[in-house]
Amino acid sequence: MTRDIESNAQTIADALTSAQQIPKLSSEAEQLSLDDAYSIASRVREILGKERVGRKVGFTNRTIWPVYGVDQPIWGEVHSDGLFSTDQPVNLASYSEPRIEPEIVLGLKHAPTAEMNNEQLAGCVEWVAPGFEIVQSIYPNWKFSVEDSIAAQGLHGCLVLGDKIAATHDVLTGLAEVPLALFKGAEAIESGKGENALGGPIEVLAHLVSL
């Protein structure tokens, strides 16, 4: 069956703008293909008409793949109206089943290309910053296929960007070892380090560029 890209994209765009949830697109009877998922995602972005300021890569931590039933990273866009500094409030009511994720954010000064090695890719980075991503699921109870998550803009809600740090050689080579800890008040909820994301942030950039 040929997917109705326009109808599905409009349904997702409406859900995202109203913080409403919808049934997932994929089913046992009709699986959503990767090509259709990215086609729907592209059309959603056209409908929303927002200004892109960057891209996010999701599901880079392979250890959580079994939790969500996915088997590969995904990507989506970061938009100007969804980029906040740490002193700006974020209205969580704008998102469906929001969750928070600590992030390492890379700011680029040159456009990377697929033939670059990791050292060359690192040379494209101007700054590094800590951040929080608010992710969301327009599908109830965070149940979806990887294709569903792609169609829904990579589950991206917004990005809260911390202070930028100049991308010196020492900073870039140390990214994989950067420790991260997520606290809820005084309680440590989760911990990890940069290498949990496909080996490190530069490796994530390499993955994104390869797509």
Rank of each mutant, 00 (worst) to 15 (best):
I40F: 12
M1P: 01
E46W: 07
A152I: 02
E30N: 08
V128M: 02
K24E: 09
N117A: 11
S33V: 06
N91H: 10
G174L: 03
E77P: 01
Q136T: 03
V146C: 04
E190W: 15
P23C: 15
E195H: 15
A197N: 14
G192Q: 12
A188I: 14
I202M: 03
G162Q: 00
D148V: 04
P73A: 05
K184V: 11
E195T: 13
S96G: 14
L159I: 07
E77F: 06
G174T: 04
L182E: 08
T2I: 12
Y68W: 06
V160K: 04
G123P: 05
S18F: 12
P98A: 00
S7H: 15
H207N: 10
R43I: 12
T2G: 10
A19F: 10
L155R: 13
S26G: 11
K56N: 00
A41V: 10
E126Y: 03
F59I: 01
I12R: 05
K184N: 10
V53L: 05
S27P: 04
E126I: 00
L32Y: 07
Q20R: 15
A167Q: 05
P98W: 02
G123K: 05
F59V: 00
E97L: 03
N117K: 11
G58K: 01
V105R: 07
I47V: 10
S26F: 14
R43A: 12
F59D: 00
R3V: 08
D4A: 06
K56W: 05
T113M: 09
A29G: 13
Q136C: 03
S7V: 14
P98H: 02
G185N: 08
S80C: 12
S191N: 15
N141C: 07
Q153P: 08
A167K: 02
T11F: 08
G82E: 06
L92I: 11
E147L: 10
S149I: 05
T63R: 11
Q31V: 14
A188Q: 15
V160D: 05
L83I: 04
P98N: 04
W75E: 00
Q120N: 04
A114E: 08
V78C: 11
H156M: 12
S42I: 06
G107L: 01
S191L: 14
E101S: 11
A176H: 04
T168G: 09
A15C: 13
